[in-house]
Amino acid sequence: MSDVLLKVSGVSVSIPTGQGAVHAVDDAAFSINKHEVFSLIGESGSGKSILGQAIMRLLPPNAVFSGKVELGGMEISALSEKEMQKVRGKTVASIAQNPYLAMNPGIRVGTQIAEPMRAHLGMSKEEAKARTCRALKYFDIIPPEVREREYPFQYSGGMLQRAMVAMGTAADPELIIADEPTKGVDVLKKRNIAAIFQKVASDGCAFLLITHDVGFARAMSDRIAVNYCGQIIEIAGRDAFFKEPLHPYSQALLDAVPERGMHPIPGSSPSMIEVPEGCRFHPRCPYKTDRCLTNPPVVKLEGRCVRCWIYA
């Protein structure tokens, strides 16, 4: 039996807009093992979130998807919408960035947490309520019987964040996709989020963390993937990656964090509509040569891979 939980191969997503198609995801391929915490890092607007939505099959209706997503051996990208509904929230759940926006303001928190249980675990109202209370208690939202009946606006920010995790894990998913969990959050709150996520991960749940926060990814992950302009340009184990990033963009990204002296990456991110020919990073790359004008191959090295001509 294989340990692979999620396998993404050749996934591309483009979204037509008034100015032209945005190529948000291009030829993404990676896999996540069971119980593994996998981070996808990259700058804001590099198409990371769209990849998360593509896995959940919750892309905007006009988005064009191609490729294959397998979850626990099942090709979920080929399921009907009806069948996919049985997977969402059950096998793979998502946790959004801003709990104030992601929770329905007009429905009691308890009811919202209980929804996946009722939909997927066939629970009665009472069973789901009891389980919701246990979940709230597990995430330190006390007293659960009172909190369960409250509305999101009655919660504090941290509490709502935990309630959202409780909602994501309500039906015991095997994989959680967390989109920018630390965006706009101060250091203390970030630590709390890390602690809750670690708690959930230690229960055996795998994570796909989509983040621009290199420090957070380093603290949480088993493996790291780097996204640049819609493409995954490097995948490596955490320790190997931070010890020796291979792709020039990865190196630049790590040099840009405060601990390494905050060296900015020269140039600016290209538009997602008119992407550069060949290697997408070449206009900003210090090592660029003529061959960079043609598409670089994905080079596999022991336990990691990189999309760059230097290693070909």
Partner: peptide, 20 residues
């Protein structure tokens, strides 16, 4: 966003529209 969250929980579109 909470509509997308509701969809992410695996609720059918009908329930998302009516309840959420």
């Amino acid at each position: 966003e909470y509509i997308q969250t509701a969809r992410g929980k695996g609720l059918s579109e009908k329930i998302v529209i009516i309840r959420h």
